[in-house]
Amino acid sequence: MADASTPPPAAYAASPVTPINLILLSLFVFLVYLRLKPSAPATLPRAPPPTVFRTFTPPSLFPYNGLNGMPVYLSVRGRVFDVTSGRNFYGPGGPYANFAGRDASRGLACGSFDEDMLTKDLDGPLDTLEDLDAEQLEAMKGWEERFEEKYLVVGKLVAVGSPEAEEAKA
């Protein structure tokens, strides 16, 4: 016979529905759900807007100086380069910022960042660069080659009132 101080054998069988088991089961179901739920479809980043080769005049190039969310363009020997990817150099606050939106030919040839290297009269004739010596021309050519390797040519720079400028307006 069983001792009166020992509980009956059914009392030893614990119920499987305990708070800890419910928490563990909930955690297991949640982890399975996270593992099996469909993931969001992968999306590609938006492509930059297409760049169209166009004809610029000094006044139409000037707004492309990196301010107000604009791209950064500069011109060397009549070719306009999109240097936006080098914004930290050519954009606002950069060491070459005064060349942004301008013809940088003379300044790059002379190795000078001074404002007097830039054409003051945007409606006047383009700088012919005729007074540059061979060493300065070679320096400018080196810069132009560097830009060709790194940046996209987006246009050409012509003087205001030139036939090409008038044709570009039409």
Score class of each variant (00 low, 15 high):
4 A>F: 13
5 S>N: 13
6 T>L: 10
8 P>D: 12
9 P>C: 00
9 P>W: 00
10 A>M: 11
13 A>D: 13
13 A>Q: 15
17 V>Y: 11
18 T>Q: 13
19 P>W: 09
20 I>Q: 15
22 L>P: 01
22 L>S: 08
23 I>C: 11
25 L>N: 04
26 S>V: 05
30 F>D: 03
30 F>A: 14
31 L>N: 11
31 L>M: 12
34 L>C: 10
34 L>K: 12
34 L>F: 10
36 L>C: 10
36 L>S: 09
36 L>R: 12
37 K>G: 05
37 K>R: 15
38 P>W: 08
38 P>H: 08
38 P>L: 08
39 S>M: 11
39 S>F: 10
40 A>L: 15
41 P>W: 09
43 T>L: 10
43 T>R: 13
44 L>H: 11
44 L>V: 13
44 L>N: 12
45 P>D: 10
52 V>I: 14
53 F>Q: 12
53 F>K: 14
53 F>M: 09
54 R>G: 14
56 F>S: 05
57 T>L: 08
58 P>N: 09
58 P>Q: 04
58 P>M: 03
58 P>V: 02
59 P>Q: 03
60 S>D: 06
60 S>E: 04
61 L>W: 02
61 L>P: 03
64 Y>S: 10
66 G>W: 09
66 G>V: 05
70 M>R: 11
70 M>L: 07
73 Y>S: 00
74 L>I: 04
76 V>S: 07
82 D>M: 05
82 D>L: 03
83 V>C: 02
87 R>Q: 13
88 N>L: 09
88 N>C: 03
88 N>Q: 13
89 F>T: 15
90 Y>V: 08
92 P>L: 11
93 G>W: 07
94 G>S: 07
96 Y>D: 15
98 N>M: 14
99 F>T: 01
99 F>S: 07
99 F>C: 08
100 A>S: 14
101 G>C: 08
101 G>R: 08
102 R>H: 13
102 R>A: 12
106 R>Q: 05
109 A>N: 01
109 A>G: 04
112 S>P: 02
112 S>Q: 05
113 F>Y: 13
113 F>T: 15
116 D>E: 14
116 D>I: 07
116 D>W: 12
117 M>P: 06
120 K>F: 08
120 K>A: 15
123 D>M: 10
123 D>F: 05
124 G>Y: 01
126 L>C: 10
127 D>K: 01
128 T>L: 00
129 L>Q: 00
132 L>E: 01
134 A>H: 03
135 E>G: 09
135 E>R: 12
135 E>P: 03
135 E>A: 15
136 Q>Y: 00
136 Q>S: 01
137 L>I: 05
139 A>C: 12
142 G>Q: 13
145 E>Q: 13
147 F>T: 04
147 F>Q: 04
147 F>D: 03
150 K>P: 04
151 Y>D: 09
152 L>H: 07
154 V>E: 00
155 G>D: 03
156 K>C: 07
158 V>E: 06
159 A>Q: 07
159 A>G: 13
159 A>Y: 00
163 P>Y: 05
164 E>H: 08
165 A>N: 04
166 E>H: 11
167 E>T: 14
168 A>K: 06
168 A>P: 07
169 K>S: 12
